[in-house]
Structures are given as structure tokens and as C-alpha cells.
């Protein structure tokens, strides 16, 4: 094997860092956009055709660009934000741009599942639009929302590996540099193994928590 344990642990840590940080930012962006997508649609709290249409198109555009292309396409922007276009920090920028709109869609879906009757009850109680979002919409969607976040997180793990291919660091980088370019099958197997365990772990945790808070 061409790498030692320390290198693997370091790569794993980089992957976790990339996924964690980009998840945090893309979740915030996705939550805001997802809520906006729901409440600006026809007949909803803040019905606004312009905002809805623009947002919808914007998200669709981002969603239709494959990650590997997005990564290259936004290099000037990445450089502007983090000062460089290679390395872990540089990988995080396209990852956020990739996952943000994705999470927005997932959150939109979860929020749309909420029983309109509950929204009606909220309105009949005299709740403000904010109260409806915070106290009714999000809690009622929480369980399905968590499943969406789980899916997005797994998507980010995949994206982080791809980012590795262009020098982003992490497990993907290790697999490409040693496993692929230098024919070290052991490194390849180990990284794949770690990724599989990671994804399994994330999905099981997500399912478990979602089930715990689901009341239906």
C-alpha cells in the first residue's frame, strides 16, 4: 500500500469537513429558498408570482448542471470567495451551490406534504405568517424534512469525492491519486469501504431520527 493510516484518517477528516461545512451552508440556503418556494406559491401565505417564478427557474437551472461541470464553471466565483480554486476550501463553494438548490427542492416537497387543514386551523387561530411557518409548517414537516436532509448529505458525500478528483482533498482525492492513477487496489478498496460505511451510517441515522419524531 502506498499510503499509511495517517493519510487515510486525514483524508477522511477532510471529507467530513467538506460535507459538514457545505451541508451547514446549503441547509441554511435551502431552508430559506424552500420556504420561499412554498409560501410564495398561489393561494399561500405570501403569494408572489414574480418571486416564485424567478426562484423556481433559478433552482431548476442549478439543478440541471452536473456537479463536475458546475465545479469548473464556478471557478472564478470560487476564487473570488476563498482566494484559490484548488483544495478543500475551494471544493466547498461549488458543493454549496450544488446542494443548496437541491435541498431547497427537498424542503419544498416536505413542506407541501403538510396537511392544508392544519394550515387552515392555524389561520383560524389568528397565527401570523411567521408563526404559521415556525410553529405549524416546519414542525409538521420535520420528520420528512430530516429524510430529505439525509439524502442531501449523502449527495454531498458523493460530490466531495468528485471534488477530490480535481484536487479537492479528501477520500476521493486519495482514491484517484493512489487507487486509480497508481494502481493501488488496496487504497481503492479502503476508500470505497469507508464511503459505503459512511453512507450506510448516515442513512440509518437519518431514518432512525425521522422515525422517532414521526407521529402519524
Amino acid at each position: 500500500m502506498l499510503v499509511d493510516n495517517q493519510q487515510i484518517v486525514a483524508a477522511l477528516w477532510e471529507t467530513i469537513l467538506m460535507v459538514g461545512i457545505s451541508l451547514l451552508f446549503s441547509f441554511v440556503i435551502g431552508l430559506i429558498l424552500g420556504i420561499l418556494l412554498v409560501v410564495t406559491r398561489k393561494g399561500h401565505l405570501w403569494e408572489n408570482k414574480v418571486v416564485f417564478t424567478v426562484l423556481n427557474a433559478f433552482i431548476n437551472i442549478f439543478r440541471s448542471i452536473p456537479f463536475i461541470i458546475l465545479m469548473v464553471a464556478v471557478i472564478p466565483f470560487t476564487r473570488l470567495v476563498v482566494g484559490t480554486s484548488i483544495g478543500t476550501a475551494a471544493a466547498i463553494v461549488p458543493m454549496i451551490l450544488y446542494a443548496g438548490p437541491y435541498i431547497a427542492r427537498l424542503i419544498e416537497n416536505s413542506l407541501l406534504e403538510v396537511d392544508p387543514g392544519v394550515m387552515e386551523a392555524a389561520q383560524a387561530m389568528g397565527a401570523t405568517p411567521w408563526q404559521i411557518i415556525i410553529r405549524f409548517l416546519i414542525p409538521e414537516a420535520l420528520s420528512s424534512l430530516l429524510l430529505g436532509i439525509t439524502i442531501a448529505t449523502i449527495g454531498l458525500v458523493g460530490a466531495s469525492a468528485m471534488a477530490g478528483a480535481v484536487g479537492g482533498g479528501g477520500l476521493g482525492d486519495l482514491a484517484i491519486t493512489y487507487g486509480y492513477q497508481r494502481f493501488d487496489t488496496t487504497v481503492m478498496l479502503i476508500t470505497v469501504g469507508i464511503l459505503v460505511v459512511m453512507v450506510q451510517g448516515l442513512q440509518s441515522t437519518g431514518n432512525f431520527i425521522s422515525k422517532k419524531i414521526r407521529r402519524r
Binding site: 386551523a121 401570523t128 409538521e140
Partner: peptide, 22 residues
Amino acid sequence: ELREAKRSIGMIFQHFNLLNSK
């Protein structure tokens, strides 16, 4: 004022419309 007024108008529904998560 309308939100205020709604506090003195209670409503119940055919399908109850309770918060399932609470």
C-alpha cells in the same frame, strides 16, 4: 385587528386538523 378578532372566534373541523407532531 383581524388576528385579534379571530381569538374570539373558535373553530372546529371535520378532520380535526390537529398538529400530529405535537
